[in-house]
Computed example of a mutant assay.
Amino acid sequence: MKWMILLWGLASGFAGAELKVEKSEGTLKIFDDGSLLTAYRTDWKVPYLYPLLSPSGANVTRHWPTDPGVEGEEHDHPHHRSLWLSHGSVNGYDFWAFEDGKGAQIVHQKFIAQGVDEQGAAYCSVELAWQAGGKTQLKEKRDHRFWKIGEDTFALQIDSELTAADGDVVFGDTKEGMLGLRVDRSLRLNGPLAKSHIINSEGIEDGKAWGKRANWVAAYGPDERGEPAVIAMFDHPSNLRHPTWWHARDYGLFAANPFGKHDFEGNPDKTVGNYTLKQGKSLKFRFLVFIHHGDLQSADLPAVWTLFSKF
């Protein structure tokens, strides 16, 4: 298939179409032929990306609460901001839902680099600080790389390097984390406008995919314009505890979480999934978000996984 040929090129550094980058204070926007494709935003307690568009022009992630005027959206979980990365227990502080009231936040400190490379792919690197308890718990360097592949596919790679900034850091065992994606109304399994399904790399479908370990998980069905769409998240084999557990909810939340073993496996030991990062040491993660205008067959997610696993 044409898009697969282009994706093979992607693996060697070739992008199918040139994107454009526009930066302002605290925000960076990615444009495709003059149309907004996505934006990195810092107007919340953690940075996030919204919107996230399919090549059809439809937004495939939740609008609310960033855009509160969209009909048919449910106003639950205000911390589910389109696409974001955080965790619910970092040295006991809640960077996910902020239910502990301790003032945790992931602070955008600066843009390190941004632009469009010689192959036409857009990139954005940022420096972040996970702050709580009057100090920086973690320093983070987060790299985003965006590709428009042919006419029907958009891909986003996120690389995160987390460094224990001031003493050891314990990532606690909780289902609330880590790379989170909240899909749009029609791409949900359940809900008043839901029309879609869930599948993972092991062939496990719909509600049974929750808490399972897999290379990837995907939602597929009609987007907000009624066009066929697939949105998938991939866990790189270099990541801690790969293949990760997936917090894949029928109401539209998908999250890759290597720390939630107690919750996902029903282990009576509530600390079994804890992970300690020693002071000054770093932990790296790599994820791919893949958006395809088409069906599961044309998306060919197993082939995407094979390519992604090699770089």
Rank of each mutant, 00 (worst) to 15 (best):
M4E: 15
L7F: 10
W8A: 15
A15V: 07
E25R: 08
I30T: 06
F31T: 13
D32T: 01
L52I: 04
G57L: 04
V60P: 01
V60M: 09
D67Q: 07
H87Q: 12
G101F: 08
A104K: 05
Q105V: 14
Q109W: 07
Q109I: 02
K110G: 01
K110A: 15
I112R: 08
A113M: 07
V116S: 06
D117V: 00
Q119H: 14
Q119Y: 09
A132Q: 02
E140D: 11
G150H: 00
F154R: 12
L156Q: 08
L156E: 12
Q157P: 08
T163S: 08
A164R: 00
G167K: 02
F171L: 04
T174C: 02
R182A: 07
V183Q: 09
D184K: 14
R185L: 08
S186D: 11
L187V: 03
G191M: 06
L193T: 13
I199W: 02
E205S: 09
D206I: 11
D206V: 10
K208E: 15
G211I: 05
A214S: 13
N215T: 08
A218E: 01
A218G: 03
A218R: 06
Y220E: 07
N239L: 10
W246T: 05
W246F: 08
L253D: 09
A255F: 02
K261D: 14
N267W: 10
P268C: 00
K270F: 04
N274K: 09
S282C: 04
F290P: 07
F290R: 12
I291C: 09
H293G: 07
D295M: 09
A299W: 00
A299R: 05
P302R: 11
A303P: 04
A303T: 14
V304M: 03
T306P: 02
L307W: 02
